[in-house]
């Protein structure tokens, strides 16, 4: 058994596609129309055959309160690993990405939290000494 896909609920798939590809730098892996929505997944260019991230529509009635409660408590919906969090932070800020928490040390990692503009907080992690 393998984990081939993980998902985040996004308020708007088109807006999410732009944010996750143009700004975060992921690539589209699957973009298949399914009814009024799409089966829309992205992958890291560093690992194109790796686990996909599904940009999943938020229209189930349970999703809105779930996302709002996570954001209220500052809890990221997902987490991505980077090699150099400070340069990634600078790059994303220069592209207009808004951060809820600038990079800071947290034990064995350095972490930051950004707003994906689609209703989620996203954590970036750099393993220290890596």
């Amino acid at each position: 058994m393998r984990i081939y896909v993980s998902s985040v609920f996004v308020d708007d798939q088109s807006k999410a596609l732009d944010f996750y590809t143009r700004l975060l730098g992921f690539r589209v892996k699957n973009d298949v129309p399914v009814g009024e929505h799409r089966w829309l997944t992205v992958v890291s260019p560093e690992d194109p055959d790796g686990t996909e991230l599904l940009l999943e529509p938020s229209d189930h009635p349970a999703v809105k309160p779930y996302k709002a409660a996570l954001v209220e408590d500052g809890i990221p919906a997902t987490s991505f690993q980077v090699d150099d969090i400070d340069s990634e932070y600078d790059r994303l800020v220069s592209l207009g990405v808004s951060f809820a928490r600038e990079p800071m040390d947290a034990g064995p990692v350095r972490m930051a939290v950004l707003d994906d503009t689609c209703g989620n907080l996203v954590q970036l992690i750099q393993m220290k000494g890596a």
Partner: peptide, 21 residues
């Protein structure tokens, strides 16, 4: 200015003692 997530994450990172949300 810490969120609940940060209070929990940082206290675990700094003290090694997990606190439930």
């Amino acid at each position: 200015k810490q969120s609940l997530f940060e209070i929990c994450a940082l206290s675990f990172a700094d003290d090694g003692a997990p606190l439930s949300r």
